[in-house]
Structures are given as C-alpha cells and as structure tokens.
C-alpha cells in the first residue's frame, strides 16, 4: 500500500508541477545556472591541486561539485516534510488527505518524494555535466558504496526533517530546528571547504553533523573509490546519528500529532 500511495503522490505532484509550465521550465533551467556557477569557480582554481583537500584527490572542482550536489539532499530531507505540511494546511488539502485511509507518516513521506526525485535529477545532471564538460573523474568510483552512503544520509537528514515537521504541526510557523540545523550544516559540514580549515573546536562541532560524514563518505566513494571497509567510519557515524535521533523524532512527531488532534489545530495554519 505504501508504494501505491507513494506513486500516487509522485504522479499528482508531477502533474501539478508540469501544469505550471513556466515554473517547471525555470526549475530545469535553474540546474544549468548552478552548474555554470560551479564552472566559473572551477576556472578560478584551474587545475591547481589544493593541499587541504588532498585526501579527496586535490581537485577543488570535484570536491565542490559533490559537496553542492549532495547537500541538496540535506535541504530536501530537512525541509520538504515540514513545507508539505504547511502547504497542506494553507491550501486546505491536508484535511482531505487526513480523512483518507492513508496513515499520516505515509502522507508526509510520500508528499516529499517529488522533491527527492527532482533533487536526484539535479544531482545526476550536476555529475553528468561535471564528467562530460569539466572532466570530473569518477571512473574508479565505488557506486554501491556511494548509494549506501546516500541512503543512510537521507535517513539521517530526514530524522531532523521529521523533528522539524513536528514543530510545524504545533507552532505552524517559525520552526527553529530546520533553520539551525541547515545553517550549521552549510557552515561546518564541508560543502564548499574541508572541515580541516575550521578552528579546531569548530571542527569538533562539525563531527556531530551528519552532513560532515555524508560528504566525506560520498567523496571517498566517488572520487577515491574506497571500498566499504574504508567507508565504514562514515557509515557508522551516519547509522549512529540515525539510531539516536530518529526515535526521538518519531516520538516527537507522534506526540505532535496527538497534541494537534486534541488541540483541534491539525489543519489550522
């Protein structure tokens, strides 16, 4: 049933997005604009090898394109669930969805799938353009390892997304969780620069963020082709983060739904 529901949401969102033709075209065009930006950054650095990123192969363009591409999953995982709840509350569709036989977690997860699909297309385009146009070398990549890291990263990021959705369920607007987590991740997670250049105490803080381990694992898998054993530190950190945060998030979410139903504010905005 979950897959039927998930597919129904995906189809509905795709039809809906495609009906706004201009917006849909702009979204696609936006991908190419981002890649162009990365191209100019890469021209700045040229073929220079940067010692700070030597452990990833030393090529800044390769480093940053993977950072930017895969951190889009962070944005989607953290924000899309709460955004969909808010959207449903504002548009008035949430009540109709909740009146169906689908469970609330299914609704929330399925409603985010289109964003994940679109992000995956964007990441794929980034990587393809990187390979074809800018000579990004991922020929020796460990793709199964990269997929494992990606899946674990999405689950880890989503645990924060669920926490964020719980806040939106109760407070409707002004969720602090997603904002703080996203800002810290962009600042300290090693998207544009390696964490080694941070002051030592900030570098320690960055180790508590899943994106740090996600990007490190992804870069090792794609750029260095590390095997699963070598990727294990990143994998363990991501699993550990999920095991600690996910139950708390689910508990919060369940309590938030009960609270909103008692409060009568489930569909209010």
């Amino acid at each position: 049933m979950f897959f039927n529901n998930a597919f129904a949401f995906l189809k509905k969102d795709l039809l809906n997005e495609m009906s706004y033709k201009l917006s849909f075209c702009l979204q696609i065009a936006g991908i190419f604009v981002s890649v162009a930006m990365l191209f100019f950054i890469s021209r700045l650095f040229g073929q220079a090898q940067i010692p700070a990123i030597a452990k990833y192969g030393g090529d800044y363009f390769a480093f940053v394109i993977i950072g930017v591409a895969f951190s889009s999953y962070l944005e989607v995982s953290v924000n899309s669930m709460s955004r969909k709840i808010r959207e449903g509350q504002m548009m008035g569709t949430l009540e109709a969805l909740l009146a169906t036989q689908a469970e609330l977690p299914t609704i929330i997860i399925s409603s985010s799938l289109y964003s994940f699909l679109f992000t995956s297309v964007r990441v794929l385009v980034y990587i393809l353009i990187g390979v074809i146009v800018f000579g990004l070398n991922i020929g020796g990549a460990n793709y199964p390892g990269a997929i494992i890291i990606l899946v674990l990263s999405i689950i880890a990021f989503s645990s924060i997304g669920i926490l964020s959705a719980s806040f939106i369920m109760i407070f409707k607007k002004g969720d602090p969780v997603a904002r703080i987590f996203s800002s810290l991740s962009w600042l300290l997670g090693g998207v544009y620069y390696p964490i080694e250049i941070l002051p030592q105490w900030l570098e320690k803080v960055s180790l508590f963020l899943p994106i740090t381990h996600s990007l490190e694992g992804m870069r090792f898998a794609l750029l260095k082709g590390y095997d699963l054993r070598a990727l294990m530190p990143s994998i363990i950190c991501l699993i550990l983060f999920t095991v600690i945060v996910m139950p708390v998030s689910l508990l919060f979410f369940s309590s938030a739904v009960k609270f909103a139903k008692r409060d009568g504010s489930l569909t209010q905005y």
């Binding site: 529901n5 129904a8 509905k12 039809l15 809906n16 009906s19 109709a96 689908a102 609704i107």
Partner: peptide, 20 residues
C-alpha cells in the same frame, strides 16, 4: 481541499489510491 490543476478524474484517482 482539491488540487485545482488536476482534472476531476485525476483528483478522484489520487484520493481513491489513498483509500487503498
């Protein structure tokens, strides 16, 4: 409570799927 840019049929198909 409906999706305005979907047809009536598409709306019903969507809600029917959510109703298993």
């Amino acid at each position: 409570s409906f999706y305005w840019r979907l047809t009536g049929r598409q709306n019903l198909e969507f809600f029917a799927t959510l109703n298993n």
